[in-house]
Write a protein that binds this DNA or RNA. Structure first.
Length: 314
DNA sequence: AGCCAGGCATCAG
DNA sequence: CTGATGCATGGC
Protein backbone atom coordinates (compact mmCIF):
# COMPACT_ATOMS: atom_id res chain seq x y z
CA UNK A 1 0.00 0.00 0.00
CA UNK A 2 2.20 2.80 1.24
CA UNK A 3 5.30 2.67 -0.87
CA UNK A 4 7.07 5.64 0.70
CA UNK A 5 9.25 3.39 2.87
CA UNK A 6 9.91 0.79 0.22
CA UNK A 7 12.08 0.77 -2.84
CA UNK A 8 9.18 1.43 -5.17
CA UNK A 9 8.89 4.99 -6.31
CA UNK A 10 5.80 6.65 -4.90
CA UNK A 11 3.18 7.21 -7.51
CA UNK A 12 2.28 10.84 -7.11
CA UNK A 13 -0.84 10.86 -9.15
CA UNK A 14 -3.89 8.86 -10.00
CA UNK A 15 -5.39 8.65 -13.44
CA UNK A 16 -9.04 8.04 -14.10
CA UNK A 17 -10.74 7.50 -17.42
CA UNK A 18 -14.11 8.82 -18.54
CA UNK A 19 -15.42 6.48 -21.22
CA UNK A 20 -17.69 7.32 -24.18
CA UNK A 21 -20.73 5.75 -22.53
CA UNK A 22 -20.30 8.16 -19.62
CA UNK A 23 -20.59 11.16 -21.95
CA UNK A 24 -23.99 12.01 -23.39
CA UNK A 25 -23.15 12.49 -27.08
CA UNK A 26 -20.30 14.28 -28.78
CA UNK A 27 -17.61 16.17 -26.94
CA UNK A 28 -14.74 18.40 -27.99
CA UNK A 29 -12.57 19.44 -25.07
CA UNK A 30 -10.52 21.75 -27.29
CA UNK A 31 -13.53 23.65 -28.64
CA UNK A 32 -15.11 23.82 -25.20
CA UNK A 33 -12.05 25.29 -23.52
CA UNK A 34 -11.19 27.63 -26.39
CA UNK A 35 -14.63 29.13 -26.90
CA UNK A 36 -14.22 32.13 -24.63
CA UNK A 37 -16.81 31.12 -22.07
CA UNK A 38 -16.76 33.26 -18.97
CA UNK A 39 -16.43 30.21 -16.77
CA UNK A 40 -13.11 29.06 -18.13
CA UNK A 41 -10.60 31.78 -17.22
CA UNK A 42 -8.75 29.59 -14.75
CA UNK A 43 -8.07 26.64 -17.04
CA UNK A 44 -4.49 26.41 -18.24
CA UNK A 45 -3.47 24.85 -21.53
CA UNK A 46 -0.60 22.42 -21.16
CA UNK A 47 0.77 19.50 -23.10
CA UNK A 48 -2.11 18.04 -25.04
CA UNK A 49 -4.77 19.02 -22.54
CA UNK A 50 -5.80 21.50 -19.87
CA UNK A 51 -5.44 21.69 -16.13
CA UNK A 52 -7.12 23.47 -13.26
CA UNK A 53 -7.02 23.54 -9.47
CA UNK A 54 -10.03 23.41 -7.23
CA UNK A 55 -11.06 22.50 -3.75
CA UNK A 56 -13.00 19.27 -3.79
CA UNK A 57 -14.31 18.01 -0.45
CA UNK A 58 -12.15 20.60 1.29
CA UNK A 59 -9.06 19.15 -0.36
CA UNK A 60 -6.89 20.95 -2.89
CA UNK A 61 -6.81 19.07 -6.14
CA UNK A 62 -5.07 19.62 -9.44
CA UNK A 63 -6.60 17.86 -12.40
CA UNK A 64 -5.25 17.57 -15.90
CA UNK A 65 -7.79 16.63 -18.53
CA UNK A 66 -6.83 15.27 -21.93
CA UNK A 67 -9.08 13.99 -24.67
CA UNK A 68 -8.29 10.86 -26.63
CA UNK A 69 -10.44 9.32 -29.30
CA UNK A 70 -12.75 11.37 -31.48
CA UNK A 71 -15.44 13.98 -30.99
CA UNK A 72 -18.02 11.33 -31.84
CA UNK A 73 -16.58 8.75 -29.43
CA UNK A 74 -14.82 10.84 -26.82
CA UNK A 75 -12.71 9.49 -23.99
CA UNK A 76 -11.15 11.64 -21.28
CA UNK A 77 -7.98 10.88 -19.39
CA UNK A 78 -7.87 12.73 -16.11
CA UNK A 79 -4.68 12.94 -14.11
CA UNK A 80 -5.23 13.83 -10.46
CA UNK A 81 -2.45 15.38 -8.44
CA UNK A 82 -2.81 15.77 -4.70
CA UNK A 83 -5.73 13.43 -4.25
CA UNK A 84 -6.14 11.76 -0.92
CA UNK A 85 -6.67 8.06 -0.92
CA UNK A 86 -9.91 8.69 0.97
CA UNK A 87 -11.37 10.49 -2.00
CA UNK A 88 -13.16 8.21 -4.36
CA UNK A 89 -12.51 8.53 -8.03
CA UNK A 90 -16.25 8.45 -8.65
CA UNK A 91 -16.62 11.68 -6.66
CA UNK A 92 -14.05 13.28 -8.94
CA UNK A 93 -15.81 11.90 -11.96
CA UNK A 94 -19.12 13.33 -10.76
CA UNK A 95 -17.45 16.68 -10.26
CA UNK A 96 -16.02 16.75 -13.79
CA UNK A 97 -19.29 15.53 -15.24
CA UNK A 98 -20.97 18.48 -13.57
CA UNK A 99 -18.59 21.24 -14.67
CA UNK A 100 -17.99 19.90 -18.19
CA UNK A 101 -21.75 19.21 -18.43
CA UNK A 102 -21.17 15.73 -19.82
CA UNK A 103 -24.79 14.75 -19.17
CA UNK A 104 -26.25 17.41 -21.46
CA UNK A 105 -27.89 15.58 -24.35
CA UNK A 106 -26.14 17.23 -27.30
CA UNK A 107 -27.73 14.88 -29.83
CA UNK A 108 -31.13 16.10 -28.75
CA UNK A 109 -30.02 19.70 -29.28
CA UNK A 110 -28.77 18.89 -32.78
CA UNK A 111 -31.87 16.96 -33.82
CA UNK A 112 -34.36 19.32 -32.25
CA UNK A 113 -33.08 22.30 -34.24
CA UNK A 114 -31.83 20.59 -37.40
CA UNK A 115 -34.30 22.61 -39.48
CA UNK A 116 -33.45 25.92 -37.84
CA UNK A 117 -30.90 28.37 -39.29
CA UNK A 118 -28.73 27.73 -36.20
CA UNK A 119 -27.99 24.36 -37.80
CA UNK A 120 -25.09 25.86 -39.78
CA UNK A 121 -23.13 26.11 -36.52
CA UNK A 122 -23.47 22.42 -35.62
CA UNK A 123 -20.72 21.02 -37.83
CA UNK A 124 -18.04 23.64 -37.17
CA UNK A 125 -18.81 23.57 -33.43
CA UNK A 126 -19.51 19.86 -33.02
CA UNK A 127 -18.91 18.64 -29.49
CA UNK A 128 -18.83 22.14 -28.01
CA UNK A 129 -20.36 22.11 -24.54
CA UNK A 130 -21.29 24.71 -22.00
CA UNK A 131 -19.19 24.70 -18.88
CA UNK A 132 -20.20 25.40 -15.33
CA UNK A 133 -17.82 27.48 -13.26
CA UNK A 134 -16.55 25.64 -10.20
CA UNK A 135 -16.52 28.88 -8.21
CA UNK A 136 -19.65 31.05 -8.59
CA UNK A 137 -18.07 34.16 -7.07
CA UNK A 138 -15.14 33.94 -9.49
CA UNK A 139 -17.65 33.56 -12.30
CA UNK A 140 -19.50 36.67 -11.17
CA UNK A 141 -16.31 38.75 -11.22
CA UNK A 142 -15.29 37.23 -14.56
CA UNK A 143 -18.64 38.18 -16.05
CA UNK A 144 -18.37 41.73 -14.77
CA UNK A 145 -14.78 42.05 -15.99
CA UNK A 146 -15.62 40.79 -19.45
CA UNK A 147 -17.80 43.73 -20.42
CA UNK A 148 -16.75 45.84 -23.39
CA UNK A 149 -13.30 44.32 -23.78
CA UNK A 150 -11.54 41.43 -25.45
CA UNK A 151 -11.43 37.91 -24.07
CA UNK A 152 -7.67 38.22 -23.79
CA UNK A 153 -7.89 41.39 -21.75
CA UNK A 154 -10.50 40.19 -19.25
CA UNK A 155 -8.57 36.95 -18.78
CA UNK A 156 -5.50 39.00 -17.91
CA UNK A 157 -7.54 41.08 -15.43
CA UNK A 158 -8.59 37.89 -13.68
CA UNK A 159 -5.06 36.48 -13.65
CA UNK A 160 -3.79 39.73 -12.08
CA UNK A 161 -6.51 39.67 -9.43
CA UNK A 162 -5.56 36.11 -8.54
CA UNK A 163 -1.82 36.80 -8.47
CA UNK A 164 -2.19 39.97 -6.40
CA UNK A 165 -4.94 39.08 -3.95
CA UNK A 166 -5.36 35.31 -4.07
CA UNK A 167 -3.73 32.69 -1.91
CA UNK A 168 -0.72 31.01 -3.47
CA UNK A 169 -0.76 27.26 -3.12
CA UNK A 170 2.00 24.79 -3.80
CA UNK A 171 1.04 21.58 -5.50
CA UNK A 172 2.57 18.16 -5.10
CA UNK A 173 4.01 18.16 -8.61
CA UNK A 174 6.09 21.22 -7.75
CA UNK A 175 3.93 23.75 -9.55
CA UNK A 176 2.11 26.58 -7.87
CA UNK A 177 -1.23 28.21 -8.36
CA UNK A 178 -3.07 31.32 -7.20
CA UNK A 179 -6.58 30.68 -5.96
CA UNK A 180 -9.28 33.25 -6.68
CA UNK A 181 -9.69 35.51 -3.62
CA UNK A 182 -12.71 35.12 -1.36
CA UNK A 183 -15.36 37.88 -1.49
CA UNK A 184 -14.22 39.34 1.84
CA UNK A 185 -10.59 39.53 0.71
CA UNK A 186 -11.44 41.25 -2.54
CA UNK A 187 -13.89 43.61 -0.83
CA UNK A 188 -11.06 44.78 1.42
CA UNK A 189 -8.44 45.78 -1.17
CA UNK A 190 -9.89 49.05 -2.43
CA UNK A 191 -10.60 50.43 -5.86
CA UNK A 192 -7.09 51.63 -6.73
CA UNK A 193 -5.65 48.18 -6.11
CA UNK A 194 -8.19 46.62 -8.43
CA UNK A 195 -7.55 49.33 -10.98
CA UNK A 196 -3.89 48.37 -10.97
CA UNK A 197 -4.97 45.01 -12.39
CA UNK A 198 -5.79 46.96 -15.57
CA UNK A 199 -9.48 46.67 -14.83
CA UNK A 200 -10.12 50.28 -15.81
CA UNK A 201 -13.55 51.63 -14.95
CA UNK A 202 -14.70 48.08 -14.13
CA UNK A 203 -12.73 48.25 -10.88
CA UNK A 204 -15.58 50.03 -9.18
CA UNK A 205 -18.07 47.44 -10.40
CA UNK A 206 -15.86 44.58 -9.18
CA UNK A 207 -15.45 46.18 -5.78
CA UNK A 208 -19.16 46.89 -5.41
CA UNK A 209 -20.14 43.32 -6.25
CA UNK A 210 -17.48 41.89 -3.93
CA UNK A 211 -18.77 44.00 -1.03
CA UNK A 212 -22.36 43.01 -1.65
CA UNK A 213 -21.44 39.32 -1.67
CA UNK A 214 -19.18 39.69 1.38
CA UNK A 215 -21.92 41.45 3.32
CA UNK A 216 -24.49 38.86 2.33
CA UNK A 217 -26.61 41.39 0.50
CA UNK A 218 -26.05 39.51 -2.75
CA UNK A 219 -26.60 35.84 -1.93
CA UNK A 220 -25.42 33.64 -4.80
CA UNK A 221 -26.97 30.50 -3.32
CA UNK A 222 -30.31 32.21 -2.97
CA UNK A 223 -30.08 33.42 -6.57
CA UNK A 224 -29.49 29.88 -7.78
CA UNK A 225 -32.80 28.82 -6.22
CA UNK A 226 -34.88 31.55 -7.84
CA UNK A 227 -36.54 31.28 -11.23
CA UNK A 228 -34.45 32.52 -14.14
CA UNK A 229 -36.53 35.69 -14.62
CA UNK A 230 -36.48 36.50 -10.92
CA UNK A 231 -32.73 35.99 -10.63
CA UNK A 232 -32.08 38.09 -13.73
CA UNK A 233 -34.23 40.92 -12.43
CA UNK A 234 -32.51 41.05 -9.07
CA UNK A 235 -29.03 41.01 -10.65
CA UNK A 236 -29.95 44.07 -12.72
CA UNK A 237 -30.23 46.00 -9.47
CA UNK A 238 -26.49 45.64 -8.88
CA UNK A 239 -24.31 48.56 -10.00
CA UNK A 240 -22.24 47.46 -12.99
CA UNK A 241 -24.41 44.50 -13.91
CA UNK A 242 -26.60 44.84 -17.00
CA UNK A 243 -28.58 42.28 -19.02
CA UNK A 244 -25.55 40.69 -20.71
CA UNK A 245 -23.40 40.34 -17.61
CA UNK A 246 -26.37 38.97 -15.68
CA UNK A 247 -26.97 36.34 -18.36
CA UNK A 248 -23.29 35.36 -18.42
CA UNK A 249 -23.29 34.79 -14.70
CA UNK A 250 -26.62 32.95 -14.66
CA UNK A 251 -25.47 30.66 -17.48
CA UNK A 252 -21.85 29.96 -16.59
CA UNK A 253 -21.89 30.64 -12.86
CA UNK A 254 -25.22 29.15 -11.84
CA UNK A 255 -26.12 26.86 -14.73
CA UNK A 256 -29.35 28.46 -15.97
CA UNK A 257 -29.27 27.10 -19.51
CA UNK A 258 -32.14 29.34 -20.63
CA UNK A 259 -29.84 32.35 -20.23
CA UNK A 260 -28.33 33.53 -23.51
CA UNK A 261 -25.90 36.45 -23.20
CA UNK A 262 -26.27 38.83 -26.14
CA UNK A 263 -23.05 40.64 -27.05
CA UNK A 264 -22.01 42.35 -30.29
CA UNK A 265 -21.13 38.99 -31.90
CA UNK A 266 -24.44 37.32 -31.12
CA UNK A 267 -26.35 40.48 -32.01
CA UNK A 268 -24.75 40.56 -35.47
CA UNK A 269 -24.93 36.86 -36.32
CA UNK A 270 -28.58 36.50 -35.26
CA UNK A 271 -29.61 39.35 -37.54
CA UNK A 272 -27.69 37.79 -40.43
CA UNK A 273 -28.95 34.23 -39.99
CA UNK A 274 -32.57 35.16 -39.36
CA UNK A 275 -32.54 38.09 -41.80
CA UNK A 276 -34.23 40.47 -39.44
CA UNK A 277 -33.15 43.74 -37.89
CA UNK A 278 -33.42 43.54 -34.10
CA UNK A 279 -32.27 45.48 -31.07
CA UNK A 280 -30.14 43.74 -28.42
CA UNK A 281 -33.20 43.36 -26.23
CA UNK A 282 -35.21 41.87 -29.05
CA UNK A 283 -32.45 39.33 -29.74
CA UNK A 284 -32.45 38.33 -26.11
CA UNK A 285 -36.21 37.70 -26.12
CA UNK A 286 -35.93 35.97 -29.49
CA UNK A 287 -33.35 33.48 -28.24
CA UNK A 288 -35.28 32.64 -25.11
CA UNK A 289 -38.58 32.17 -26.94
CA UNK A 290 -37.13 30.13 -29.75
CA UNK A 291 -34.73 27.88 -27.87
CA UNK A 292 -36.13 27.71 -24.32
CA UNK A 293 -33.81 25.68 -22.11
CA UNK A 294 -31.42 25.34 -25.06
CA UNK A 295 -31.00 29.12 -25.41
CA UNK A 296 -27.65 29.06 -23.64
CA UNK A 297 -26.37 26.43 -26.06
CA UNK A 298 -27.76 28.25 -29.09
CA UNK A 299 -26.06 31.46 -27.96
CA UNK A 300 -22.75 29.71 -27.34
CA UNK A 301 -22.82 27.99 -30.74
CA UNK A 302 -23.69 31.23 -32.54
CA UNK A 303 -20.99 33.11 -30.66
CA UNK A 304 -18.31 30.53 -31.36
CA UNK A 305 -19.37 30.13 -34.97
CA UNK A 306 -19.25 33.89 -35.58
CA UNK A 307 -15.77 34.14 -34.10
CA UNK A 308 -14.48 31.10 -35.99
CA UNK A 309 -15.79 32.60 -39.21
CA UNK A 310 -14.21 36.00 -38.60
CA UNK A 311 -10.86 34.31 -38.06
CA UNK A 312 -11.31 32.45 -41.36
CA UNK A 313 -11.28 29.07 -39.68
CA UNK A 314 -14.57 27.92 -41.14
C1' DA B 1 -4.48 57.07 -35.78
C1' DG B 2 -8.72 55.37 -35.07
C1' DC B 3 -11.77 51.59 -34.25
C1' DC B 4 -13.32 47.62 -31.82
C1' DA B 5 -13.64 44.34 -27.98
C1' DG B 6 -18.60 38.77 -24.76
C1' DG B 7 -21.58 46.71 -22.02
C1' DC B 8 -23.08 49.69 -18.58
C1' DA B 9 -24.49 54.14 -16.21
C1' DT B 10 -26.29 58.31 -17.19
C1' DC B 11 -28.98 61.66 -19.31
C1' DA B 12 -32.15 63.57 -22.91
C1' DG B 13 -36.39 63.16 -25.22
C1' DC C 1 -39.37 53.06 -23.11
C1' DT C 2 -35.48 54.06 -26.84
C1' DG C 3 -31.22 56.42 -28.37
C1' DA C 4 -26.66 58.95 -27.75
C1' DT C 5 -22.28 59.39 -25.11
C1' DG C 6 -18.26 58.67 -21.99
C1' DC C 7 -15.55 55.25 -20.12
C1' DA C 8 -9.97 52.19 -19.22
C1' DT C 9 -7.33 49.22 -21.69
C1' DG C 10 -5.04 46.63 -25.43
C1' DG C 11 -4.74 44.75 -30.21
C1' DC C 12 -4.84 45.49 -34.89
Amino acid sequence: MNSSRGKVVTKKFIEIIVKPDEINGQFSLGATLSSGQTSEASWVRANSGFWNVEEVDGQLLKYEVRQVGTVEKPTLHVKLIGMHSSQSSTAIKDYLTKILRLNDDLKEFYSKFRNDPVEVTFNPCKGLRLMLASNPFESLICSISSQNTSIKHWNSIIQSIKARFGKKVLLLDGSSFYMFPKPKSLARVGEDAIRSCKAGYRANYILTASRLVAEGKLDLVKLSKMSYEEAHRSLLGVYGIGPKVADCFLLYGLGFTEAAPVDVWVHRIIQQLYKKSMSVNQVRAFLRNRFGLWAGYAGLYLFHFARLRSSQLV
